[in-house]
Write a protein that binds this DNA or RNA. Structure first.
Length: 219
DNA sequence: CACCAGGCAAGTA
DNA sequence: TACTTGCATGGT
């Protein structure tokens, strides 16, 4: 392990501790993209209820969601919170896919990463984290998803300056890790796990944290 | 009861 | 540029 970067070492520690997470396996890309919008600042349990409602309505396809009435869509996704806002955001996303990709999500996801990301960010309601989550989890693009958890865990362990912004943190992961979408996929999920279990905002359990003392790596 | 969750945009100074 | 606020349900 002598030649291993600290970021790779952190990944191995987390994988050893939590095991493989395998986020979003077996779902359609469309469902993943919808989930990425619905999960904004919201617990995944609430999102799962909203997704279930969309499945019952048979709205989890571009064609179906595009013609779903805004008010009924909002009602269906109500458990995910911000439901009026998120209904509009989903429609905004569909409008971009219609305009730029002939209504085919697969065309967006097979576009060059930079172009697809640019178009995603042009949607009102899709910011950097949502765009990157869609690219990574729906499209298997090798982009690293940053969130408030990533910032909290890595700054607390002295691996990022506190004032680092989204792009700076993302660039650091890209520079220091192999360019592998499966690694980025699993790594982000593991960061969410350690944050929820050991690195909470109010009540951190630092003594039991699998990353305790990792800032001294390689020592 | 308070606080938080797999953010983002718009408004203010 | 750098804060602040609105959006909202559901679990702990």
């Amino acid at each position: 392990m002598a030649n291993t970067d600290a970021f790779t070492y952190v990944y191995e520690l987390l994988l050893d501790h939590f095991g493989y997470q395998g986020w979003w396996p077996g779902e359609t890309p469309f469902e993943i993209a919808v989930g990425a919008v619905l999960t904004q600042n919201t617990n995944w349990q609430n999102v799962a209820k909203a997704i279930d409602n969309l499945k019952v309505m048979n709205w989890l396809s571009y064609e179906a969601l595009a013609v779903a009435p805004m008010e009924e869509l909002a009602e269906a996704i109500r458990p995910s919170g911000y439901y009026n806002l998120k209904a509009r955001r989903l429609k905004n996303l569909l409008a971009m896919i219609s305009r730029e990709y002939d209504g085919e999500l697969s065309f967006l996801l097979s576009d060059k990463t930079e172009s697809a990301r640019h178009n995603l960010l042009s949607v009102k309601g899709v910011g950097p984290e949502t765009a990157d989550a869609i690219l990574l989890y729906a499209g298997n693009h090798p982009v690293f998803v940053i969130d408030t958890y990533t910032h909290r865990v890595f700054s607390r362990h002295g691996l990022f300056p506190e004032e680092s912004d989204y792009h700076e943190m993302q660039q650091e992961f890209i520079d220091r890790l192999p360019n592998d979408h499966q690694l980025f996929n699993e790594y982000h999920a593991l960061i969410v796990m350690v944050s929820k279990e050991y690195c909470k905002k109010k009540n951190p359990l630092c003594e039991a944290c699998p990353l305790k003392g990792v800032n001294n790596y390689p020592a």
